[in-house]
Amino acid sequence: MAEKHNPLEQFEIQTLIPIRLGNLDISFTNSSAFMVLAVAAVAILMILAVRPRASIPGRWQILAELSYEFIARLVSDNIGKDGKPYFSLIFTIFMFILFGNFLGMLPYSFTFTSHIAVTLSMALVIFVLVTIIAFFKHGTRFFSFFLPAGVPIFLAPLLIVIEVISYFTRPFSLSIRLFANMMAGHTLLKVVGGFVFPLGILGFVPLAGLVAITGLEFLIAFLQAYIFTILTCIYINDAINLH
């Protein structure tokens, strides 16, 4: 048997530039490097592509305009007119996660969205932001969010508990969904890839499967970025319109 490879190896964090701040380890790692790469790629795409400002757009400009309009429609469909101020935040989240997922699909690259530390901190920022928006817009009337209107009063004790729990599990379900999808998908690719060579001439069977799973992973990469964004929209809508 060939030397044993662990399919979880690809998620290892390697320190590129060690930086220490007191007891804190804030080293520049391969994860940070890929985040910088994703931000740079998005910035370059959005800045250079729309630079010509042509009335008949070229291919790059169409790409930039399509992604802009895609999110603009998502925001107006889910939040309405009040969603305008949050467009830039939602667009940034979408492009950052999308590029993170897609950069991870390159062989030998690192997927920073496959780490719970990254996704949970994004989800917690959104959660805190949504709560602050709700308090600013509605003050203490925000607490009526936990008791939907028109509910029989004897159901209130049960319903309030359920609503409060479901409100506080939001950041966890949001972050675990993205992280688990990315981690399981990439591990699955490695596991199926491990069958190709040991099977010899029959190796084309798992290879065909690998091609199909890679296609599926591209779909999942886009879909999970979309889900993260649309749920952010729904949460902000909840905060603005209270159900």
């Binding site: 979880l8 999808n181 879909l223």
Partner: peptide, 25 residues
């Protein structure tokens, strides 16, 4: 339908993640 598909599919992915973590973690 695609959004609901992704929400449900995430649950299957949780099970797959657990299985893979048990095998290789």
């Amino acid at each position: 339908a695609w959004v609901s598909f992704a929400l449900v599919e995430a649950l299957a992915i949780f099970a797959l993640a657990i299985a893979l973590l048990i095998l290789f973690g």
